[in-house]
Simulated scan of single mutants.
Amino acid sequence: MKAAPAAQKRLLDLAELDSVIDRLAHRRRTLPELAEIDDLSARVARLATQVIAAETEAGDLAREQTKAESDVDSVRVRAERDQKRLDSGQVTSPKDLASLQSEIVSLNRRQSDLEEVVLEIMERREAADEQVTKLAAERDRLAGLRADAEDRRDAAFAEIDKENTEVKGKRGTVVAEIPADLLALYEKLREQFGVGAAMLQGTRCLGCRTSLSIAEINRIKAASHDEVLRCEECRRILVRTPESGL
């Protein structure tokens, strides 16, 4: 393949622009905010699960408290009813009177026991509610940190994308100055090796940093200026410039 030396030299400009584009893409993929967002998202998700579990426990305790309080009310109503019967003097039989008094004592004892149960449930419910509040506050705090990280990520993305657009505009200008067949070869090599063209500096290919053999250097010296050369080691397009010293 042959191409004007000026067109071949433009490959170096193209390679430099492509290197910038690659660096921008790498920077976009490896922004520290991305790892930060992933970490915060995982922590927020874990806390959200914990909040649901804590809310479920608090809800269960609320229902348990309601039932216990209902049991207390039921026993109290029965005790008050029996006490009224006792106070009314309607019960005159000593046996019935003793039975009624015994039942009142039993109901009062039962009410006291149930009230202790209610207090114990209330304490557990209060602790559960505090846990819900604590977990929800931490979840919201981390969600706020994640939102801040997302804002920083978006700002960085915008900056990178703006620069990328500018570089691609310059790339389009350079591409227009390179013959189609030479450009196609460059793109193929770039896809294979990451870099499609490299400068020959002295006896070294700057693509693979390898010093070429004397025989290869002699072959390059003998080649016409418009011949498209390839590095014998990395197979990239080898571009001759005044720095080649040939």
Rank of each mutant, 00 (worst) to 15 (best):
M1V: 12
K2S: 08
A6S: 14
D13P: 09
L14Y: 10
A15W: 04
D18S: 05
I21K: 07
A25K: 14
R27H: 14
T30N: 15
E33W: 01
A35K: 09
I37C: 01
D39C: 01
D39A: 12
D39K: 15
L40F: 13
A45W: 11
A48D: 15
V51S: 07
I52S: 15
A54T: 02
E57Q: 14
A62C: 02
R63D: 15
E64D: 15
T66N: 10
K67N: 12
V77P: 00
R81D: 13
K84M: 08
S93P: 08
D96A: 08
L100Y: 00
S106Q: 10
S112F: 12
E115K: 02
V118E: 00
L119N: 11
R124L: 02
A128W: 04
E130Y: 06
T133A: 14
K134T: 15
R141M: 04
A143K: 02
R146H: 05
A149Q: 05
E150F: 10
R153C: 05
A156L: 11
K162R: 06
V167H: 03
G169Y: 06
G169Q: 12
G169L: 02
R171A: 02
T173R: 08
V175E: 14
A176R: 11
A176T: 09
E177H: 04
P179T: 00
A180S: 14
L182T: 09
L183P: 06
R190L: 03
F193S: 10
G194D: 08
A198P: 08
A198F: 04
Q201R: 12
G202I: 00
R204S: 13
C205Q: 04
R209G: 03
L212A: 06
S213M: 07
I214A: 14
E216M: 00
E216D: 15
E216Y: 06
S224D: 15
S224I: 06
D226Y: 04
D226A: 04
E227Y: 08
V228L: 06
E233K: 15
P242C: 12
P242T: 07
S244A: 09
S244M: 09
